[in-house]
Design a protein around this nucleic acid. Structure first.
Length: 426
RNA sequence: GGAGAGGUGGCAGAGUGGUCGAAUGCGCUGCACUCGAAAUGCAGUGUGCGGGUGACCGUACCGUGGGUUCGAAUCCCACCCUCUCCGCCA
């Protein structure tokens, strides 16, 4: 959500920033609606003021037993009241139109976000690790998976396309990855472990900018709740409506949850394999911080995600997303792309975004700076640390061996109960 | 799911149609007293929106949304949430 006061004061700058994302200029329309709303509101308030005054006078007149005066005042109030609905409706209509427009506008990109149309224009920041050399032709995870217990057919039998049934040590490895990530985020990176609901109401989805634009990308329950597309939603929304006392330290939360996405716009993309599922697991990081701290926090968060890949010895590169590839609510995003030798491609495994005060405005999350009377909107950040399913894919492809087995990364040993390699099951 | 009770300011808690944005207590902030602290006294202490350079003014908000009324924290309706008991249940 954007600050209408800012747009009113800087219409050209607003449109220019929006244009970087390929959006049409709207400041003019917004300012007009805003003026309309405020004009009507002022009229309503003036009428209310007169009504309140007269009503008090009626009370006094009644107390003094002056019925005549009271009746005269009542007539006056009736007249005032008659003029109110028109302006009330006008104010409400303009306000609703304004809110609706604002709610559908994406966040403005930060200044250092490169201009671009799509992922082709993202800018690589750095690479880490060395791509493994294989003395055989490395396979894609979807080809080695079935023999190891990654059962796409049973997933499809149960639930349709984009569902997978894991069985045996590969299921355990999947669990081990999640445990490992969560432990690292909590023990080393200072995030508080959370276990939030994954069914949430409209407010939580709206506040974290998943609604109204992306309703068709999420699953809805029959009792009008939403299956979260990411635990960013419950973690971030946990501070909605709050006025936080101080934020000397950012509030850092992490959770390992199921995530659900209908993948409505992705027909035909990544239909094979475990990359794009309707249901997947993710360890999420969320930070709530002061505006002046959010840039540093964004860098820190991205490093926390990178730390997981480094511990697993998975080569990756960090991409700074261009204006055309950034998500709706982000003002700046880093994607981490892991190297998949089977596919011979870099694939997104984490996305860390600074949304600035965009979500905070929607969900009214503020804090009071030390010694100040005014409240300020917080900044919110979210990042994957990491997508568990995709990390499993990366481990499979990077740690595969000539016989189709997969070695277990050393750091996962404490979680694997002595299993050092995934072999064929039965 | 059934029955009952209840949702008021940071917290506790009064208020059941008229200067109520709301008593009182606690907490917090400032000032006074003190060498300092405690105790005490005095003053202040919610949020949004609109207007004004500003002191400030107006307006809305007592779970949420409607309604009745000249006037609603207070009456009516619907919904949400919490608590107690019963039922069911991992």
């Amino acid at each position: 959500m954007h600050d209408i006061a800012f747009i009113r004061a800087n219409p050209e700058a607003f449109d220019a920033a929006l244009a970087r994302r390929g959006a049409e200029p709207v400041a003019d329309k917004l300012v007009t609606l805003d003026a309309k709303k405020r004009e009507a509101t002022t009229k309503v308030q003036a009428a209310q003021s007169r009504r309140n005054e007269a009503s008090k006078a009626i009370g006094q007149a009644m107390a003094q037993g002056d019925k005549e005066k009271a009746e005269a005042l009542k007539a006056e109030v009736a007249e005032i009241k008659a003029s109110m609905p028109e302006w009330e409706e006008s104010a409400a209509a303009a306000g609703a139109a304004l809110d609706d427009m604002l709610a559908r506008l994406p966040n403005l990109p930060a200044e250092d976000v490169p201009q671009g149309a799509d992922e082709e224009d993202n800018v690589e920041q750095h690479q880490w690790g060395t791509k493994r050399q294989f003395d055989f032709e490395p396979k894609e995870h979807a080809d080695i998976g079935p023999a190891l217990g990654m059962d796409f057919e049973t997933g499809a039998k149960l639930s349709g396309a984009r569902f997978t049934f894991l069985r045996g040590d590969i299921a355990r490895l999947h669990r081990a990855l999640a445990q490992f990530m969560l432990d690292k985020q909590t023990r080393e990176n200072g995030y508080t472990e959370c276990n939030p609901p994954v069914l949430v109401g409209d407010d939580a989805m709206y506040g974290t900018d998943k609604l109204p634009k992306f309703a068709e990308d999420s699953f809805r329950t029959t009792d009008d709740r939403w299956l979260v597309p990411t635990s960013e939603v419950p973690l971030t929304y946990s501070v909605a409506g709050e006025i936080l006392p101080d934020l000397d330290q950012p509030i850092r939360m992490t959770a390992h949850t199921l995530c659900f996405r209908s993948e409505a716009g992705s027909a035909g993309r990544d239909t094979r394999g475990f990359i794009r599922q309707h249901q997947f697991e993710k360890v999420e990081m969320v930070s709530i911080c002061r505006p002046e701290d959010s840039e540093a926090e964004h860098e820190r968060m991205t490093k926390c995600a990178e730390g997981i890949l480094e511990a697993l010895d998975l080569p990756y590169r960090r991409m700074l997303l261009c204006t055309g590839d950034m998500g709706f609510g982000a003002r700046k995003t880093y994607d981490l792309e892991v190297w998949l030798p089977g596919q011979g491609a870099w694939r997104e495994i984490s996305s860390c975004s600074n949304t600035g005060d965009f979500q905070a405005r929607r969900m009214n999350a503020r804090y009071r700076p030390e010694g100040e009377k005014k409240t300020t909107f917080v900044h919110t950040l979210n990042g994957s640390g990491l997508a568990v399913g995709r990390t499993l894919v990366a481990v499979m492809e990077n740690y595969q061996q000539a016989d189709g087995s997969v070695a277990v990364p050393e750091v996962l040993a404490p979680y694997m109960g002595g299993v050092t390699e995934l072999g064929r099951i039965s």
